[in-house]
Structures are given as structure tokens and as C-alpha cells.
């Protein structure tokens, strides 16, 4: 593992990659007829997922550019905190607990702790708590807004006391039952990232 001088350059990988990784954890393509009644019910449901693999498509809309940018790839999640995400170009990351390994063109180029990057830690904390079904942590650190309609639920996670400041203004997670279908991240400058997922495999299979 290289230990010299590259941390600062590659740290930025972490934020978006973590976002991509964690957002895809519990997902499936089959909708249920009835959504969790409240955030606690949703947390209970999501927390039961042990392992999942999805294909993703990410779209970035930025005020800096005229056209949206898109990437595709695969993501693997294993409870409680192991995630590997690789784009079709071989770029991505592996997250194991607090340890983050950045991957470029298929090889590890850097390793660091998520807690080294406070804004990133804040985001990882929000998404981890969501997928671990830890409502208490979410309520303690973020502003939550849970909504349901006939076909979907949505959970808005907002900044409280600057916890997400700098990188994110709001995270919106949209799903159907135990399936997370979309995660949208709105940045303070108006840029938006949207991630759509398609389930490839999941354990336990009976969750829906």
C-alpha cells in the first residue's frame, strides 16, 4: 500500500463512492403492495438485509456543465458495513467498517479512515444508520421526513447543526418496501446526484 503523499488528492473519492455504496445496500425490483407505515417500520425492514448485489446507474447534474454525466457499475454490500463498488471503468472503493480503500483502474491506490473526513463521516453515518435500521442515531443527528404513497416511500435526511454541511444539503431515499430504488443527493450549490439501482441478488431472499 503506498503510504506517501497521496491522501489529500484522493480523499475526495470517498464521499461520492460511499454514497453510492451505502445507498445500494438493501434493494430489490419487486414492489410490495403496502409501504412501511412509519420510519421505525422502514428501519426494521431495511435492517434485516444481510447481503445484496446490484447494478447501478448514476446521473450527475451540475450547474458547472451543460449536460448530465452518467456512469454505470456494480455494487456489493454485506451487513453490517462491508461495501465494494466498482464502475465499468474499474474505478471505485471498498469500505470495511471505518477503513476505506480507493480503487483506480482496478487497483488500490489509497487507504484511509472515513472518520478522517468529517463531512464524509457525517454522510456515511446517515446512510449507515438508515440501512442498519438505527432510527435513534438518525433522529439524534439529522432532520428526518418520512412520506408514503400507494407505491413508494421516501425518506428525506437533512442537515442538523451543519452535520452534512459542505457536501450535502439533503439526501432523499426513495424505495418500495425493503427495496431502495433511488437515492438523490442535493448539494449546497444546487448540483444533484441521482442513483438508480437494479437488484441482482439479495439475502435473505424472502425479504420484500
Amino acid at each position: 500500500m503506498p503510504r506517501r503523499g497521496r491522501h489529500s488528492v484522493l480523499l475526495g473519492h470517498a464521499a461520492s463512492l460511499i454514497f453510492l455504496g451505502l445507498s445500494l445496500c438493501p434493494t430489490q425490483s419487486v414492489a410490495t403492495s403496502r409501504q412501511p407505515v412509519d420510519a421505525q417500520a422502514l428501519m426494521n425492514l431495511l435492517g434485516r438485509v444481510k447481503r445484496v448485489e446490484v447494478a447501478y446507474q448514476e446521473t450527475v447534474e451540475s450547474t458547472l456543465i451543460d449536460i448530465p454525466l452518467g456512469t454505470r457499475g456494480r455494487l456489493f454490500y454485506q451487513a453490517p458495513a462491508r461495501i465494494r463498488r466498482l464502475s465499468d471503468q474499474g474505478d471505485g472503493f471498498e469500505l470495511d467498517g471505518e477503513r476505506m480503500r480507493l480503487i483506480s483502474s482496478g487497483r488500490v491506490v489509497n487507504e484511509f479512515m472515513v472518520s478522517d473526513i468529517k463531512p464524509l463521516e457525517a454522510m456515511v453515518g446517515a446512510l449507515r444508520a438508515t440501512f442498519a435500521g438505527d432510527l435513534a442515531t438518525l433522529q439524534a443527528n439529522y432532520q428526518l421526513d418520512y412520506q408514503i404513497d400507494q407505491t413508494h416511500w421516501s425518506l428525506d435526511i437533512g442537515s442538523r447543526e451543519g452535520a452534512l454541511s459542505g457536501l450535502f444539503e439533503r439526501i432523499r431515499i426513495i424505495g418500495d418496501g425493503a427495496t431502495i430504488e433511488t437515492i438523490e443527493i442535493l448539494e449546497p450549490n444546487g448540483d444533484q446526484r441521482s442513483l438508480r439501482m437494479q437488484l441482482l441478488a439479495r439475502e435473505p431472499v424472502e425479504i420484500n
Binding site: 464521499a15 461520492s16 452518467g70 456512469t71 448540483d191
Partner: peptide, 13 residues
């Protein structure tokens, strides 16, 4: 490329 992949998100601001 960084914008698309999210690399260097901390530099984004």
C-alpha cells in the same frame, strides 16, 4: 471525470 465519478468530491465546492 472526477465530477462524473464523484472522485474529489471534497474539492467540488
Amino acid at each position: 471525470a472526477e465530477l462524473a465519478s464523484g472522485v474529489a468530491m471534497l474539492d467540488r465546492p
